[in-house]
Structures are given as C-alpha cells and as structure tokens.
Design a protein around this nucleic acid. Structure first.
Lengths: 132, 132
DNA sequence: ATAATATATTCAGAATTACGAATATGAAAA
DNA sequence: TTTTCATATTCGTAATTCTGAATATATTAT
C-alpha cells in the first residue's frame, strides 16, 4: 500500500465527480440507468445531436464511468458501477428531490433494443421471426 | 407538486456535484468533516492562502453546502448535511479508494478550537482559566 | 467496390472557472 | 478612535470546459 498525499487523494476522490457534474452528463447517466443504451437511443431520448452525445460518452468512458460494447454497428453503453446511481440519488436528495422523483427517471431495461426510429426495425424483425 | 422537465431535474441534481467537484473543495470538506472549522484552521491544515480558502468557502456557502456561524472575529464553518461525506466516500470508492482511507482524513471534532498559531492562544487561555 | 448507417474524433470559438493580487469589512483590543 | 486580527470581496488574467461544425472511422448492405 503506497503512501499518498492529501492533495493526491482529494484529486482521486474528485475525479468521478468532475466527470459527472453537469446536467448533461446526469441526464445521460439516468437515460442509461441500470440498463444499456446505444447512442441512437440516447439521441431520441434526449433530443440532442449525435456528435454531442458521443463527446460526453467519450469523456465518461475515459473517466472509467461507462463501459462500451459493440454489437454490429451499434455500440451499447452501460454504467461500470451501478452504485453511481446511488451517488446521483444522494446528490438529488441534497437538492431536496425525493428518491422517487429520481428513480422514476432511471431507465431499467437491461437490453432496451433501442426504440428510436433507427433501431426499432431490428426489434420488429426479431418479433416477427418469433411469431413465424 | 410542480411538474418539472428532465433538463430541470438534471440541473438540480448536478448542482451540488458541480459545487464540490474539485480536489480543493473535497480537501476543504474533509478538513471540516463532521466538526467545525474556522478559516485560519483551514489555512494551516491545508497550507493555502486565506483569500483562496475564503473564495471556495463562499462558493460552497452559495451552493447551500456549508453553514457559517460567527463567534467573535472567528467564523466557523460546518457541513449543512453530514450525508455529503457519504457522497464523498462513495466517489472515493469509485476511484478504488477504501472507505477507511477516506474516514482517516475526515476531521471529527465538533468544536476543534482551532489549533493553528492564531487560534491556539485562545484555547490555552481557556485551559489556564480552568486550571486556576 | 460503393453506399448507407452508427458512432467517433478533431477543431475552434464562446463561456466559464481557477487562482493570485489587492483591497475591503467587521469585531475586538488598546 | 485607532489598530489589529480574522475573514470577505473585487478584479484581472490564465486555464479549462462547453458546444457546434465539420469530418473520420467502422460495420453492414448492395
């Protein structure tokens, strides 16, 4: 176990916070929630430009907050540590928001099979195969 | 109960995080801990300029993170919500730090009667009065 | 190959924040 | 009232971050 200075430790503690401390990043993390989301899903869910979302995702990945998984031409993102949602909820409580208000916003689907216009055709074809 | 948009809620959730998301602010909050600290105490504890510390304290006060209490010419700061330390510990855990590493840094004295050069004379006089 | 779609990256200017220097305020002591 | 000590505030610039425009890459379909 290495000896660490207080500035070093404070730096380490602050790192995840600086990565997520913005309304945009919080919105993205809630939209991913305990499930998984591709970029195009976030695009329609949040109504932002694709490049803008990718930039935030990149930052969150570098900060070791998010994990990515490629499946065909889709890339699915998920939280690396589910406890991050507790941290977000804790911050919400400090702002006077109820835990319910937050949990109502958290996406819970493990594999959402993206509902957005671009992704839903894939979902439909899977369903139609099952029915056949 | 008012209806709130997702951007509004994300903004509210992010507010406390943006206020504390910096190594300096984390160091200050740990130095205050569950106790109380005057500015001159933080000055020696952290080794920073007084004005610099005051600036951070001001920001934390505006963000409703800290509470201040004047006693003579000293101003003592304390956390408004002790749960903030849990949030800090949670962030530390995300960085791979143990909860013990963090708790070892947290000031626990309720009224530290500041040990720094400027404050300790006051402490000594109180002690000497008791002895008399 | 070429085209189309999903996502990533680079770049630049705007906006914000960090931090130091200087100075102001407020309480108490002389 | 003047001085002193503790703390607060203002101001200016350096550094960082945000965000949009443009473009690149990777995968699948044709």
């Amino acid at each position: 176990m290495k000896k660490q200075t207080i500035p070093q430790i404070s730096e380490q503690i602050a790192a995840p916070l600086t990565a997520i401390a913005s309304p945009q990043r919080i919105a993205i993390l809630l939209a991913i929630g305990t499930g998984e989301a591709c970029v195009c899903h976030l695009e329609t869910a949040l109504g932002w430009r694709q490049a803008y979302i990718s930039q935030h995702l990149m930052a969150l990945r570098k900060a070791d907050i998010l994990q990515d998984r490629r499946e065909g031409r889709y890339v699915f993102y998920r939280l690396k540590h589910a406890s991050l949602l507790d941290l977000i909820t804790a911050s919400a409580r400090l702002s006077g928001l109820s835990a319910e208000t937050v949990s109502a916003l958290i996406n819970t689907r493990v594999n959402p099979s993206c509902e957005c216009p671009q992704c839903s055709p894939a979902l439909i074809s899977v369903e139609s195969l099952k029915a056949a």
